[in-house]
Amino acid sequence: MLGAVVAVNLLDAGYAPYRGLFAVNIALVLGLWLVLPWSRGHRGRRLASPAFLVATFALGLTGSAGTHVPLTLLAIANVAFVFGMRMAAAILAGQAALMSAIPLAVGRPMADVLREVGFLVVFAAFVLGMVASVLRARQLAERVRELTVAQERGRMAAEMHDSIGHHLTVIKMGLENAERFRDRRPEAAWDEVRQAKELTAAALADARRWVRALRPLALDGHLGSAALERLADSFSGTGVAVSFDVTGTERLLGPDTELVLYRVLQEGLTNALRHAGARFVRGSLAFEKGKVVLVVADDGKGHGQGRGFGLSSLAERVEALGGTLSSGNAARGFELRAELPA
């Protein structure tokens, strides 16, 4: 698009006196394009959006022979992403008014003016329609993310209730029994106290596991394989040896892919600690052609047939990203394997 603007200017001898100014204008447009924000989150760069709009509009004055209009529409679309649809519509209305008033003031035919304004209105409606669709898609994606987080929190709450809640209930009953036995059967009372102490340690270990599980994806600023490695390291104090390695050339992954890989590793480690009775767990992340593969394997006793809620939920999330999740008993222990497009 910008190449067409430059080509028209160079071929039109009538714009020769303005080519120096035109070159500066083109350089400004290119420089601003590199720093343009495309969402409201980049507050430090928001001023680049109106500056880019002015720079593209100025091309019409420095010699673009009208070929700058698509660039100006692109700039208005950027304004809609950064400042909202109302601001973009107001700018379009102002531009249409200028395109009507100035030519008519210098005596241009009404038919030519209406044709140019009509061209602007038609393409502006198309551009703003596309922007509205993208913004709506972003809202839906954010809503899906919120629902996913709510679903996962509900699952975690249920599992915490089943594990820690069960321990606390038994501890309470044991201490009540110890209180009843303390005079008549002191040995039985001490047995209840010892059992309560053991259950307290188990409940504390469960609580620590859930604290690890609730940590965010970015651990101290780490993402990708670094975040997964830190998650694996955080399980090192549980009495189970945990290792993690990466093969292949690492490349940038989408945030949804990173989050799902994080949850797969988290589920594999937690299941190995809670159910498998494993002594060693190995996580392996492999970057292959067109995909990334995460395998979590333990040397425990394996799992029963079928998937629990956690694995079923993970499988749905993996499949939603176009990947596959498989799990089952291996030659020694249990293996969880996730393949995702990369």
Rank of each mutant, 00 (worst) to 15 (best):
A7Y: 14
A7P: 13
N9Y: 02
L10F: 05
L11S: 07
Y15M: 09
A16W: 13
R19F: 01
F22V: 04
I26R: 04
L28H: 03
L36W: 03
F52V: 05
V54N: 08
F57N: 12
T62F: 14
A65S: 09
A77H: 06
A77M: 15
N78S: 15
A80H: 04
G84V: 12
L92I: 15
A96K: 15
A97D: 07
P103T: 08
L104Q: 15
A105I: 06
R108W: 12
V113S: 08
A132W: 07
V134Y: 07
R136G: 10
A137I: 13
R138M: 11
L140N: 01
E152K: 09
R153T: 06
G154H: 12
A157T: 14
A158N: 11
E159R: 09
E159V: 05
H166A: 08
T169L: 09
K172T: 11
L175Y: 02
N177G: 04
R180H: 05
F181R: 07
R184A: 02
A189V: 03
E192Q: 11
K197M: 13
A202R: 02
D206F: 03
V211M: 05
P216M: 05
P216E: 04
L219E: 01
L223A: 11
G224Y: 00
S225Y: 01
A226F: 01
A241I: 00
A241F: 00
S243R: 00
F244P: 05
D245V: 08
V246G: 10
V246C: 09
E258I: 01
L261Y: 09
R263Q: 05
V264A: 14
L265S: 09
L265M: 14
Q266S: 13
E267I: 04
H275M: 02
R279H: 15
R279E: 14
F280M: 12
L285H: 02
G290Y: 07
D298G: 10
D298M: 08
K301W: 06
H303Q: 14
G304F: 12
G306N: 03
R307F: 06
G308E: 00
F309V: 13
S312D: 05
E316R: 10
R317V: 01
R317M: 07
R317H: 02
S326Q: 14
A330W: 00
R332G: 12
L340A: 08
L340K: 11
A342R: 05
